[in-house]
């Protein structure tokens, strides 16, 4: 009986801590992406002020859906294109972000999935 209880406790412990144990620490690329995201993206996509003609979409889980908000397939290339060229009222970051920086932001967006 004692052994059975012990086994149950172990199982409960595993179930309780499994998600935390699986939580991924951000790598260097994602960490840089997080800093760049906070600088360039967060002001609109997380904390958009009232009064904008169109409220920018939140980007958590953007790669979990088959399509981006504008309807194109949610691929790295599509997101890269939106970041660099802009889309509708979203400004282009062409010239302000280097290729490596865009890749870091995309890596961070994947980590927010």
């Amino acid at each position: 009986m004692l052994k059975q209880n012990l086994a149950r406790i172990c199982l409960m412990t595993m179930l309780l801590f499994f998600p935390t144990a699986c939580k991924k620490q951000l790598g260097q690329d994602e960490l840089q992406g997080a800093a760049l995201y906070r600088t360039h993206c967060s002001a609109c996509h997380d904390d958009a002020p009232e009064g904008l003609l169109k409220t920018p979409p939140r980007l958590e889980g953007i790669f979990r859906h088959p399509n981006l908000p504008d309807g194109v397939p949610a691929t790295d290339d599509a997101v890269r294109s939106v970041i660099l060229q802009g889309l509708r009222t979203m400004p282009a970051f062409d010239g302000r972000l280097q290729e490596q920086e865009v890749r870091s932001i995309i890596a961070y967006l994947h980590s927010k999935n």
């Binding site: 002001a43 904008l52 009222t89």
Partner: peptide
């Protein structure tokens, strides 16, 4: 300017102008 990333600056002014 079209690449302005500050939401309270050009995007806000242009949104106001649209209204």
């Amino acid at each position: 300017y079209t690449r302005c990333p500050m939401p309270t600056a050009c995007p806000m002014i242009t949104s106001h102008f649209a209204r």
